[in-house]
């Protein structure tokens, strides 16, 4: 076994254990919550109470395994969930995994684009104003505050009014492809950009105060090069944590943007699942969001190791 593997393997296994534990915990809590909520699942399945007769009702109960004792239901549910099978959605009458799969595409597209835009804005803003250009800095800092304190749906409506109604550049609702993505992604990215910009600028300014920054300057390196080559990497540590958290938040909080812009996506089906008490779908969605945040955390940790060599344990 090569040296680096020997040092990485135990840590990796430990992480995997934690991930499994988190997913199991999330699944259990959801199960308990779902069972604790009052309501008749059969009514949800059929779209209303007393529409079906006793025999049909019996058949449905058996089909969805609702006649078995709770521990058995729980074990079956956990076992199947581990295999990625959450059962059929009550509402769509197709496997949960398929429903989520269809909706995940547009949401990922939106969240990914918004995140990329936000990072772009934040980097340009921070690089330009960290520790210099006082005037511009003040203006941008004010703008950041304004954007941060404005709700996303309001920004969204504003953008729609200007660019879709008056200028007609982009579709007002729904739509396919890039043009339909521009406004929602922008609306979603603005508060992210503001937050990331603040953290990045702080990180840069702190890095620029470190003694090594003086050394770099005494080598004749320009201010911009100092930022790009040295300070950015230091600032990236804090930013990568925040980006991870924000990304998970954007995925989970896509309901608002999707509603305002009339887009399909995870947000929409979550809303529907809650409205109609579509338990299997709800369980699937909770597991998805747990999985997403766990993997994002893992990714951020890996990024830390990549950025900061001091965190890598010396292989021996």
């Amino acid at each position: 076994m090569p040296g680096w593997l020997a040092s990485v393997l135990p840590a990796g296994l430990r992480r995997l254990g934690v991930i499994v534990a988190v997913l199991w915990g999330a699944a259990t809590i959801t199960f308990v919550a779902v069972k604790a909520i009052p309501g008749d699942p059969v009514a949800v399945l059929t779209g209303g109470e007393n529409i079906v007769d006793a025999a049909e009702r019996e058949a449905l109960v058996r089909q969805f395994g609702l006649d078995q004792p709770l521990p058995v239901q729980y074990l079956r549910y956990i076992g199947q969930a581990l295999l990625g099978d959450f059962g059929d959605s009550y509402q769509y009458r197709q496997p949960v995994i398929e429903v989520i799969g269809e909706a995940a595409g547009p949401t990922l597209q939106l969240a990914g684009t918004a995140m990329a835009l936000a990072l772009g804005f934040a980097f340009v803003n921070a690089l330009a104003t960290a520790g210099r250009r006082k005037g511009l800095r003040t203006v941008l800092a004010g703008l950041e505050l304004a954007v941060l304190s404005t709700p996303v749906y309001w920004v969204g409506l504003l953008l729609l009014t200007v660019f879709s109604f008056y200028l007609g550049w982009f579709p007002i609702i729904g739509g396919e492809g890039l043009p339909a993505l521009v406004l929602p992604a922008t609306a979603l990215s603005l508060p992210l950009a503001a937050l990331l910009g603040q953290v990045l600028r702080d990180g840069l300014e702190e890095a620029l105060l470190q003694p090594f920054a003086l050394t770099v300057r005494t080598r004749g390196v320009s201010e911009t090069q100092l930022r790009l080559r040295h300070a950015l990497r230091h600032a990236a540590l804090a930013v990568s944590t925040l980006t991870g958290t924000l990304f998970a938040g954007v995925l989970a909080g896509s309901i608002l943007t999707e509603t305002v812009f009339g887009r399909a996506g995870i947000g929409q089906i979550t809303l529907q699942a809650i409205k109609t008490r579509d338990m299997p779908l709800l369980l699937g969605l909770v597991m998805l969001s747990a999985l997403v945040s766990v993997s994002i955390n893992l990714l951020v940790d890996a990024l830390y190791l990549l950025i900061d060599p001091r965190l890598r344990r010396a292989p021996r």
Binding site: Q210, P211, F212, L214, T215, V216, T218, H230, R233, H234, I307, D308, P309, R310
Partner: peptide
């Protein structure tokens, strides 16, 4: 400068 631990960029 003094103390190269902080006077060299620790990430490079």
């Amino acid at each position: 400068l003094q103390d190269a631990l902080v006077s060299l960029d620790p990430l490079r």
